[in-house]
Design a protein around this nucleic acid. Structure first.
Length: 136
DNA sequence: GCCAACGTTGGC
DNA sequence: GCCAACGTTGGC
């Protein structure tokens, strides 16, 4: 099983929207690195849901329910989507600030490559981030 | 194929 | 709202 982090602005599609919808297609990705990551996702992989710009925090955990396929919003056939469903909403969001404060997490793409919207996490990184919940 | 110009993202 | 970082585009 793999671990991932996806970013979206809360104003565009929030974790609450995902809870309301049940599942969603992670569409609109138009960056090759992000797309390649989407294509590596397998059903059952765990996904951290991060709100960028206005909140800057991990707000929930999701799971991949359909592996990558052709993005229906893309006529060129270049881009891919996956389907995800919500697993758990975090009681207290884990802020970027908290993540940045952890030395072990200094090299995660969330910090090093702030513009990447779909990135992989190693299991220890995934666990470390979630453990920050109890640290507060 | 190189690189300048431009557009977008996202943290501050 | 600003600007740095980065990706993409297009002229040569």
């Amino acid at each position: 099983m793999k671990y991932w982090l996806v970013k979206q602005e809360a104003e565009k599609y929030s974790f609450d929207d995902l809870l309301k919808d049940g599942t969603t297609l992670w569409d609109g990705v138009r960056n090759y690195q992000a797309r390649n990551n989407l294509r590596l996702m397998k059903v059952g992989d765990q996904v951290l849901f991060y709100h960028s710009v206005s909140q800057m925090a991990v707000v929930g955990i999701a799971e991949v329910t359909k592996a990558a396929f052709q993005d229906p919003t893309d006529v060129t056939g270049t881009w891919s989507v996956v389907e995800i469903k919500p697993i758990e909403k975090l009681e207290v969001p884990i802020t970027l600030k908290q993540i940045k404060a952890v030395k072990k997490l200094k090299n995660v793409a969330l910090i090093k490559q702030s513009r990447l919207s779909v990135m992989s996490l190693r299991k220890p990184e995934f666990d470390t981030i979630l453990n920050l919940q109890s640290a507060t």
